[in-house]
Simulated assay, not measured.
Amino acid sequence: MLEYKVDDEVFLRMFNKDDAEEFFDLTINSKPYLKEWLGWLDYTKCVEDTVQNIQLRCNELVNNGGYPQSFAIIYNGRIAGTIGFNEIHKDNKIGVVGYWLGEKFQGKGIMAKALKTLIDYGFNDLKLNRIEVRVAVENKKSRALPERFGFKEEGRIRQAEWLYDHYVDHVIYGLLANEWK
């Protein structure tokens, strides 16, 4: 089991099949909160959907030469959310980050710690040259994270994502390996 200790409260680890029920409950209990910015929530209807999601995440390990692509964020022994690379473009050494936290875990600095750890992992272990974060223009909380860590705002994609009944524009942030300290 690959784990990355962040501090005494937070660590990142690979998902496993035993996480399905807890991760499903976190997703469903946070659904009204998360639905403002995540367009896939209506596809998670039962624990089996989460089992399949975790299996896909486990398969990433094989596809990435033994390196996980995504992680459970563990806070004081509980799954608080997830963070990882939604995409890795191996030829260009680019990783595109995605993340979310359950509603009851907001405001504790968890995601900032997790993102810093993921950036280190991406540049040091995966040997990426570039890490991107794409986030809805109006999602101020999610935009604050890449800005905090020195990502540069590089542009906007108009109507980049369909969220249930409307399109949202995305901001693209980028950080290069030689810019990360």
Rank of each mutant, 00 (worst) to 15 (best):
L2M: 15
D125S: 09
E138Q: 14
E138W: 05
V168H: 14
D165M: 07
T27Q: 11
V62Q: 15
Q52W: 00
L56K: 10
D49A: 08
E161C: 13
G109L: 01
I79G: 02
K127M: 06
Y164C: 12
D120N: 05
W162M: 12
G109K: 02
V6D: 04
K140W: 08
L101F: 13
K108A: 00
M1A: 09
N92D: 15
K108T: 02
G84M: 00
I73D: 07
R78C: 01
V47G: 03
L175M: 05
E161V: 14
T117F: 03
T117E: 07
E147G: 11
I73V: 15
Y67N: 10
I131P: 05
I28T: 04
G155N: 14
R134N: 09
K5S: 09
L145F: 12
F123W: 02
G66Q: 04
D19K: 04
N16M: 10
D7Y: 06
S70Y: 01
K93H: 15
E60V: 06
E132F: 12
A20V: 05
R130A: 04
G122H: 00
I74L: 13
D8K: 10
F149P: 15
N92R: 15
F149E: 14
L101A: 09
D8H: 06
K93Y: 12
G122P: 02
H89N: 04
